[in-house]
């Protein structure tokens, strides 16, 4: 249904479970993809699995210069950046009263500030093209809060406010800016949980199971599509009904 042939997409955090699935979904819909992340090996493996329209662009998102260089590198290798998916994110959990400045700043810097910089970096090309899709991967936690994740929740809620403001500014230029907010998604991270822990989590989810990376990717694919041109400034919650927002 969604055809991204001829579109060029930059995806951060593509070495992770969700980012990899997003890259695959966009690629399978015909897009050329630039895979970014800190770990080169899984990026190369994913690019090899996808095929010749996949490019690898390693980037350390905690480094300002690297972040600012990334959109330019992506535009050089693909010709343009029509779709930007800010998926990379880190956690450094701690109780609020124990949270250090460093734990706060590093999470805000990678999750929120780098997202802002990458958005800025791709806007010029999108404005000229009068077409662009920005999809920022937020989190259910940004809307509901979560103990031990004051920094992470702040960064993810910050993304939503930022995306809405930017969506206002560039809507007349054919550029949409939206968020996808995943709930509990089965990835390498959740594989480590015990069955007992998983049962407890699933009991809180009306769908009674964790989501899959592919189910997040499907939401991103929609928001990246031509068909989603009238959807902007919104947050698409994909959480099995865990929080109905």
């Amino acid at each position: 249904m969604f055809d991204l042939t001829g579109k060029n997409a930059l995806i951060t955090g593509a070495s992770g479970g969700i980012g990899g699935a997003i890259a695959k979904a966009l690629y399978d819909a015909g897009a050329t993809v630039a895979l970014s992340g800190t770990r080169v090996e899984p990026l190369e493996a994913l690019a090899a699995e996808l095929g010749e329209r996949a490019h690898v662009l390693p980037c350390n998102l905690s480094d300002k210069e690297s972040v600012e260089a990334l959109p330019k590198q992506a535009a050089e290798v693909m010709g343009s950046v029509d779709i930007l998916v800010n998926n990379a994110g880190i956690t450094r959990d701690n109780l609020f009263m124990r949270m250090s400045d460093d734990e706060w700043e590093s999470v805000l810097n990678v999750n929120l500030t780098s997202t802002m910089r990458l958005c800025k970096g791709v806007l010029r090309g999108m404005m000229k093209a009068r077409w662009g899709r920005i999809v920022n991967i937020s989190s259910i936690v940004g809307a509901t809060g979560n103990p031990g994740q004051g920094n992470y929740a702040a960064s993810k809620a910050g993304m939503v406010g930022m995306s809405k403001s930017l969506a206002y500014e560039v809507a007349t230029r054919g550029i949409t800016v939206n968020c996808v907010a995943p709930g509990f998604i089965a990835t390498a991270m959740t594989d480590k949980l015990t069955d007992d822990q998983k049962d407890k989590i699933n009991a809180q989810i009306p769908s009674a199971r964790m989501g899959t990376p592919e189910e997040i990717a499907a939401a991103v694919l929609y928001l990246a599509s031509q068909e989603a041109g009238y959807t902007t400034g919104t947050t698409l919650h994909v959480n099995g009904g865990m929080a109905m927002l």
């Binding site: 010029r124 404005m127 000229k128 500014e169 560039v170 007349t172 230029r173």
Partner: peptide, 9 residues
């Protein structure tokens, strides 16, 4: 205001 940004570009 966005037009002025585009003009400068």
């Amino acid at each position: 205001s966005l037009d002025t940004v585009e003009l400068v570009m």
